[in-house]
Write a protein that binds this DNA or RNA. Structure first.
Length: 291
DNA sequence: CACTTGACCTGTCCGC
DNA sequence: TGCGGACAGGTCAAGT
């Protein structure tokens, strides 16, 4: 669920909360969530100071003073939540969530020298964090294969078309979900951007018109930016680094809106399966191409 | 190689 | 109320 806008929101939050903090203890209840050896953790995480947090695709990368980085993938249910005086206390809106940590979904606890803590929670245990040398992050096989960042200035229509060139026979939804084509789109923003572009999710890439490609290139960027502005989407359990939920779904056109009226034409939104995933669309605004 | 399906997990919701 | 099963959806491995 955390897709590009949610991960970006977490990273921005971390940058305002944990810079220069020094790690003093690390606890992990589930080796799969944090598979490093204890000796690596002792040597390169304990005692390290946080330099900065950044994002690549859906990855959170926390650079440390030891020239190691903590790389985190939240997958579906991961949360990276900071508990400090800023966001925890009687009367604070996030107290009900933050105050209860750790809970049964807590996998890793990182404690800083000022006794504040960073919690990695992950109900379904699909997510992970890994400690590795900063220079090796970009060399990871799956990082090297990632497509371009859709919000980068140089992500032009020409680049978009080039990226789709080898996907002519797959449907457009599967193509934009493929992280080697584009980095950062997941199920929510795939559905939303296809709706705004008026493209049926099962349309084959090779059958898209130039006009549709141009429109989709724009709507992908629009939707991702809009969601970042709204703090992301909280479909199930996404929260940002301060424990706050995102607001995008109050504004969504199709995602999780099956049977509800389309915001443009009042036709009930339909839910189908495309690329193995629940897919929401408007049958009038996104007509199926006949072929 | 391109594309699809299944596995990884746990919690929730729906129908009987 | 309890219980089975479908579903949620990011990514990689395995299968077609």
């Amino acid at each position: 669920m955390p897709e590009l806008p949610e991960v970006e929101t977490v990273v921005r939050g971390l940058n305002g909360l944990i810079i220069d903090k020094k790690v003093v203890t690390v606890k992990c209840d589930n080796p799969k969530s944090f598979p490093n050896d204890q000796s690596q953790i002792d040597n390169f995480l304990i005692g390290a100071k946080v330099r900065r947090a950044k994002r690549r695709a859906k990855l959170i990368i926390i650079d440390l003073s030891t020239d190691y980085s903590l790389v985190v993938h939240l997958k579906m249910t991961g949360q990276l939540v900071y508990k400090g005086e800023q966001n925890w206390g009687a009367g604070h809106p996030n107290d009900s969530l933050i105050g209860q940590l750790p809970d049964k979904s807590t996998r890793v606890i990182i404690e800083f020298a000022d006794q504040t803590k960073l919690y990695f929670n992950d109900q379904r245990k699909f997510g992970w964090m890994k400690l590795l040398p900063t220079v090796e992050v970009a060399e990871l096989a799956f990082v090297k294969k990632l497509g371009p960042e859709p919000l980068a200035d140089d992500f032009s229509l020409v680049v978009f078309k080039k990226r789709l060139a080898r996907k002519q026979r797959s449907n457009i939804k599967a193509a934009i979900l493929d992280q080697t084509v584009l980095a950062g789109i997941g199920n929510i923003y795939a559905d939303e951007s296809l709706f705004l572009a008026g493209v049926h999710p099962r349309t084959l890439v090779g059958e898209l018109t130039d006009q549709q490609l141009k429109k989709l290139h724009q709507t992908i960027r629009q939707v991702l930016q809009k969601s970042i502005d709204l703090g992301g989407s909280s479909s199930r359990n996404y929260v940002d680094a301060t424990g706050a939920k995102g607001n995008y779904l109050n504004w969504a056109f199709v995602y999780k809106r099956d049977q509800q009226p389309c915001r443009q034409c009042q036709t009930p939104i339909e839910k189908i399966r495309v690329a193995g995933r629940g897919t929401h669309f408007c049958p009038i605004c996104q007509p199926e191409s006949r072929s």
